[in-house]
Design a protein around this nucleic acid. Sequence first.
DNA 1: CCTTATTGTAAAATGACTTTACGAAATAAA
DNA 2: TTTATTTCGTAAAGTCATTTTACAATAAGG
Lengths: 163, 163
Amino acid sequence: MSIFDELTKQPNTSEELQPPFFGALLRIVWQDVRSRMYKAIHDAGFADFQDAHFAVFSYPLPDGIRPSELARQKKMSRQAINYLITQLEELGYVERRASEGSDRRLIYLSARGQEIAETIFTCLRRLHAEWAEEIGHERFDVFLDVLKQLSLKVQESTPEASP
Amino acid sequence: MSIFDELTKQPNTSEELQPPFFGALLRIVWQDVRSRMYKAIHDAGFADFQDAHFAVFSYPLPDGIRPSELARQKKMSRQAINYLITQLEELGYVERRASEGSDRRLIYLSARGQEIAETIFTCLRRLHAEWAEEIGHERFDVFLDVLKQLSLKVQESTPEASP
DNA sequence: CCTTATTGTAAAATGACTTTACGAAATAAA
DNA sequence: TTTATTTCGTAAAGTCATTTTACAATAAGG
């Protein structure tokens, strides 16, 4: 059975993927985490938070950053980030505020924005606990450790990339 | 230092993330895999392959599936999938072909589409080897194993989800 | 057979961007 | 300091992926 046939086939419930296909695994798990965060946010009453807003509500969260710097960080155009910031500002989740000196206005989370952030953290903490229990703490720690190593490796090979 | 302050802070080069933030780790690694696949496809000469096409070129690859079933599998509307299929058909990467009986037309990868699939597999195999070397085979195996476990767990809790 | 749900498309609307553009500000060069 | 150049923030228009609305053609169920 060729590698192509293996992947081409519809998934049998008990079918296992072969080594090279961790792409699909990563995607599936990542999508689940993301949709859980989204659901948690909505369940917490922030119904107007949209999926695209994750571009801003992702690590590292904005805390006194210049719009253009934020754009670079999230790998978007200044205009695209500006579009999202404007929207999030209207929803009351971020603020543009001049810091000390009559410097330019920087981007901060508002109080409500920080509530969203906390909601995300709580969701992730719960998921962490649940999965660590399910998988076994030792193995899950290895998993997280490898993930951390990979993300560091990846970030240094792709300079100026953090989102 | 509160959990919020931790995440809010701009990343120092040698900064470590705390436990709950594997969301960011997953995202970073997944994005790297995806952009590598994209680059591999383009480097292989398929310059007209667009990012959105990954919706169709993802596990499980279409191999005689009904459009509406594909839409359900990839969690998109029938119209959205149809839009992509039409595009990929014009580019010569997929085919609509009636199978035995004058049944309805099903979706298959074309020969060129299979070349793209092989390109993706090659890219993933190379990445697999590179990372296993870097991380250490035993630990990387644990990593993949946990990933597999999580993706299975996630899929059964979210029925009809495979993309 | 008739009724009801599912399918494949089309057309229009929406959302999330990118591209083009430009004046205002900051930085660097002279 | 003055000038030149780059970076910045935004606006306006365009593009692309996707959803919504709609409908006729099948298929499935009773």
